[in-house]
Design a protein around this nucleic acid. Structure first.
Length: 981
RNA sequence: GCAUGGAUAGCUCAGUGGUAGAGCGGCUCGUUUACACCGAGUUGGUCGGGGGUUCGAAUCCCUCUCCGUGCACCA
């Protein structure tokens, strides 16, 4: 045991211990060690963006995971905390493109081309991709780095492709032209979750159109987007609207483009809101989801069945007309006045055009919500495009498992949110028009129906495909085939034949096949490409890879030892903002591919905000760099500070003060350990620790601190079991600082500064017992300083190597003393009261001193209520800082002596000659007023028969006791007042 | 609009029917040999408003206001 330095140097200590843990392989999980007596505990990290840097959100999230993992190790479990990173498609590609543009290497990604850009991104990833994981190490994260995964690792990519192919085969993935959220900057589809609605100050433009068949009738239409008028295909009114019902089937002339003012049919649609605007709706199916649905519905109405052939043709010929380019500029279909203009410029121009032709009625300010692309921060477009969609698999068990409580969410209320979302699932658009990510593993070739046998594929395959094709054409049979191209074991390609009929072709004898081939095998895809198949250019949504995270990281589809031992994982710790993005989808993938839930408990953290409650953001500059905080205060301090302020289910207001408090706490811990070390001892055991506690020598303070320790162990353990991390830290703080340092250590000085060596040794044994338990209780929260002290004080010396001898990480989690042990030490529950009475007396005595502004040592006299052992008097003397403390049952104070009623008797502060009788009288009078008020309150209650007759006996007794106590105090105070004259 | 969380001391929060609490901050005092990143004392609240149930409400019920979040709608 070396002497602890006077000050704690966290930077050096943290670096040293982390390196030691790594060298010892302390974080490495071994599935072969899992057994009935050594259960598995596992967490997969929510993979941060590979090019990201550590934020306080990560600190919060990963500190929680580390606490869970470290505690599980101490509970004797085999722990796997699996780390890794996510390729984060759109974010990473954006970041790299931006950097390349900044350094002038490119103006646009097309300057490089797909292959070169992807190469650049890989270079970027290799350079910066490890940063965030390195930063996690500074925090003390006990991840098994030997298992670090990346969503674009070859094995992982293969899993993604395999799952895509499987779902395609099952018919759950399909290609379709659908309305998607289109980001005109990223030039890609984005998910609903990446669209942020924002309130806008827009304009509502009202324009009028003439009914062709009734030249005297004009309809006024309101729109916020006049620039898409050239894409209008119809005018819709509610058939029940008496204002317009008679106009259904008639026509108006579309005002724009001015050179192509088409006739538009007025059609009925039940969904038109008669109370909104003018009740007349223009239908622009290529630019609005609701309008597209009107288009789909138009032929199914009763009205459609009554139509003459001319009108019916008008109705049938309606089609989505996209008047915009993918980048948000207007195309030729928008007309000569708008073509080439950006959509916002086009909006202004369109309004001007309407005014010029006398159609514009008015323009009013209008507040509406517009969807913004989260990434590019521009309004998104609803756009029709060819995309890949997924019908979610395994939805039923996924919804049930949470509803039935087999998988638990903390806080519980998120399970309702989850259930609601699961109840209204929409197909998932999984394709993205990006270059960085997993490319859709589908190869396509279009071929004339007579040429299927000449596909360029091996004869045997071509023949089989011909048979399928014939079958499909002749009797509408299956159009699918699964076959191996490479004859390599385990490799196969799935073909689906889709008819593509062109207007010019003479179907049924003359048409084309679109042949879709899905495979996850590099060999087979090479054969397909050689045969002239081309791979779909899209990549998959990043979440389509991360939803496989809990098992794809453990070697799936092989039944690996890791999967057997560690799946399902135990806990997932993540933010509620990705409950749909990630959590729900992982549950479905877990059931679909592992047949089992992926995790048993999900803990949702709060969102980190600044101390004014604002979200952390780059633009506000209110997001501190965690590494700077660590450098300033230490990782332990940051961990403790952030956990102390993170109540379950609430947002966290981050205040550096909390970290400061964490640092102060570490310092306190350090100094308390030094204090122990500075006490000499007569009978030292191994490593300088005291060995046995002698029950016969235990003081009331010893018993008290052992009971408080028991309480702290129980409270911290249950708080952690229930994921109440801030409650656990509050308990630790209170126990160690207030109970141990402020009361117990101070009281123990009565022995330690005395001359009884036996008692001294026994007190040190109690201190060692408490400190040893405390360090272990703290370890999950403060891994570094506890390890340093564990060794520095020699607690490791008498522990088995794998149970604390080498590292506190594997020391057993503290258990409270059980009944037998308490009996062995002779500790009774009421022992707590004896010490409490003493401390209460001390507080009252200190209060007296403070009232009279005395800071020096001073004489106290206690007139005891019952006899007190000498040791107790000595403790009182030290805690009161009294010199001397006289105990005198017959003490008669001089008139005007300040006194206080304590649980141990009357305590006097004789201040011969220097007391201010008036001040003391005022003090006692004030006290009397307080007691009188309390007494009156309780007396009133007891006098009320309404109360006494209805209240339970227990409450009645309590009130009676209270009355007696207050009365006694009142009487004594009155005597004291009289004594003052 | 629907759902959901919240409002308690200057700040951050505990407290689910029985005497309103903690930490931080503020103020006063203090170099007593672990610690000034400390110690002692002390000051802070008609528990968001209103109504109801009850002997008794921060706590249960109704209602309103404000703040947050999710979903839907948004011509």
């Amino acid at each position: 045991m070396s002497e602890l330095s006077k000050t704690y140097t966290p930077a050096e200590v943290e670096e040293r211990w982390y390196a030691q843990w790594i060298a010892d392989g302390a974080f490495t999980a071994d599935p072969s060690r899992v057994s009935a007596t050594r259960p598995a505990y596992s967490i997969v990290i929510p993979p941060p963006n590979v090019t990201g840097i550590l934020t306080l959100g990560h600190v919060l999230n990963n500190t929680i995971q580390d606490i869970l993992a470290r505690r599980a190790r101490m509970l004797g479990k085999e722990v796997l905390w699996l780390p890794g990173t996510d390729h984060a498609g759109i974010a990473t590609q954006n970041a790299v493109e931006k950097a390349l543009r900044k350094e002038g290497a490119i103006k646009h990604r097309d300057d490089l081309g797909r292959e070169k850009l992807v190469e650049k991104i890989w270079e970027w990833k290799d350079k910066y991709g490890g940063i965030i994981l390195q930063q996690l190490k500074k925090l003390g994260a006990s991840c098994d780095w030997s298992r670090t995964r990346f969503t674009m690792d070859p094995d992982y990519s293969r899993c993604v492709q395999r799952v895509f192919v499987d779902l395609y085969k099952k018919g759950l993935i399909y290609r379709g032209k659908r309305m998607v959220n289109w980001c005109p900057v990223a030039l890609s589809a984005i998910s609903d979750e990446e669209v942020i609605p924002k309130a806008q100050n827009s304009s509502m433009y009202y324009f009028k159109v003439q009914v062709i068949e009734e030249p005297d009738t004009w309809l006024t239409i309101g729109t916020t987007r006049p620039e898409v008028i050239p894409g209008d295909q119809a005018i819709a009114v509610n058939p029940k609207d008496p204002r317009y019902a008679h106009l259904i089937g008639k026509h108006v002339r579309r005002p724009l483009p001015v050179e192509n003012q088409e006739k538009l049919l007025i059609i009925p649609d039940e969904h038109v809101d008669v109370t909104f605007g003018t009740g007349v709706l223009k239908v622009t199916p290529a630019h609005d989801k609701a309008d597209l649905e009107i288009l789909y519905r138009r032929l199914g109405t009763e009205w459609a069945r009554t139509l003459d052939s001319f009108t019916l043709r008008d109705l049938q010929s309606m089609k989505p007309v996209d008047v915009m380019n993918p980048n948000g500029t207007m195309n030729e279909l928008a007309g000569k006045d708008l073509v080439g203009l950006d959509r916002f410029a086009a909006r202004k121009r369109a309004a001007e055009l309407l005014a010029e032709i006398g159609s514009l009625v008015k323009e009013e300010p209008y507040q509406n919500n517009v969807g913004y692309s989260e990434r590019a921060d521009v309004p998104i477009e609803s756009r029709l495009s060819e995309q890949w969609f997924l019908k979610y698999p395994s939805t039923q068990p996924s919804q049930d498992v949470v509803a039935k409580g087999d998988m638990r969410f903390f806080p519980e209320r998120w399970s309702k949110v989850y259930d609601h979302w699961m109840g209204g699932l929409q197909d998932w658009c999984v394709s993205r028009q990006l270059w960085w990510g997993h490319r859709v593993p589908i190869w396509v070739k279009t071929i004339h129906c007579n040429e299927v046998a000449n596909l360029g594929l091996p004869n045997e395959v071509a023949t089989k495909l011909s048979v399928v094709a014939n079958h499909a054409t002749n009797d509408g049979g299956e159009n699918e085939l699964s076959v191996s191209l490479s004859t390599k074991e385990g490799c196969s390609t799935f073909f689906r034949l889709m008819m593509a009929v062109d207007a010019n072709e003479g179907y049924p004898s003359n048409f084309h096949w679109e042949i879709y081939a899905a495979t996850d095998s590099p060999e087979e895809s090479a054969i397909l490409e050689a045969a002239g198949f081309t791979q779909d250019p899209d990549v998959l949504d990043t979440w389509f890879s991360s939803w496989l995270w809990p098992f794809a990281t453990m070697g799936w589809p092989e039944q690996t030892g890791d999967l057997k031992a560690f799946y399902p994982t135990t806990d997932l710790v993540t933010g509620p903002d990705i409950i749909f993005f990630w959590v729900a989808r992982m549950i479905m993938a877990g059931y679909e591919y592992m047949g089992e839930m992926p995790f048993k408990n999900v803990y949702f953290t709060g969102i980190i905000r600044d101390k004014q409650g604002r979200k952390m953001s780059k633009s506000l500059g209110n997001s501190p760099d965690p590494l700077e905080i660590i450098a300033k205060y230490s990782a332990d301090a940051l961990r403790f500070g952030i956990m102390r302020s993170a109540p379950l289910g609430q947002d966290i207001l981050f205040d550096e003060k909390n970290v400061e408090l964490g640092r102060n706490f570490c310092t306190k811990l350090w100094n308390a350990a030094r204090f122990r070390q500075m006490q000499s001892s007569t009978e030292q055991g191994a490593g300088g620790m005291e060995q046995e506690i002698n029950p016969a020598l235990l003081s009331s303070d010893d018993k008290w601190i052992l009971l408080r320790l028991n309480n702290a162990i129980t409270e911290v353990s249950t708080a952690l079991d229930e994921y109440r991390f801030s409650d656990a830290t509050q308990t630790l703080y209170r126990f160690f600082w207030t109970e141990y340092c402020d009361w117990y250590v101070e009281a123990s000085k009565a022995v330690l500064q005395g001359t009884d060596d036996k008692r001294k040794a026994n007190t040190l044994a109690v201190i060692d017992f408490v400190l040893g338990h405390t360090l272990r209780l703290f370890h999950p929260f403060l891994p570094f300083i506890t390890e340093e002290l564990w060794h520095g004080m020699g607690f490791n010396a008498d522990m088995p190597e794998n149970q604390g001898g080498k590292s506190i990480m594997f020391a057993p989690w503290p258990k409270p003393l059980d009944k037998d042990e308490l009996a062995h030490f002779g500790i009774l529950p009421e022992d707590e009261q004896a010490a409490n009475d003493k401390y209460k007396t001390v507080e009252l005595g200190r209060g007296l001193k403070s009232t009279f502004n005395i800071s020096k040592k001073v004489r106290f006299v206690l007139k005891p209520a019952s006899e007190l052992p000498a040791h107790e008097i000595e403790v009182l003397r030290i805690l009161l800082n009294a010199e001397p403390l006289d105990v005198d049952a017959a003490f008669t104070p001089k008139k005007g002596t300040p006194a206080s009623l304590t649980p141990l008797g009357e305590l006097f502060l004789p201040l011969d000659g220097i007391i201010d009788v008036d001040a003391e009288r005022a003090r006692v009078t004030k006290e009397i007023a307080k007691v009188e008020a309390e007494l009156a309150k309780v007396k009133a209650k007891l006098a009320d028969e309404n109360f006494t007759s209805k209240v339970p006996q227990k409450v009645l007794d309590e009130h009676k006791q209270r009355e007696a106590d207050w009365s006694a105090q009142f009487e004594k105070l009155k005597v004291m007042l009289e004594a003052l004259g």
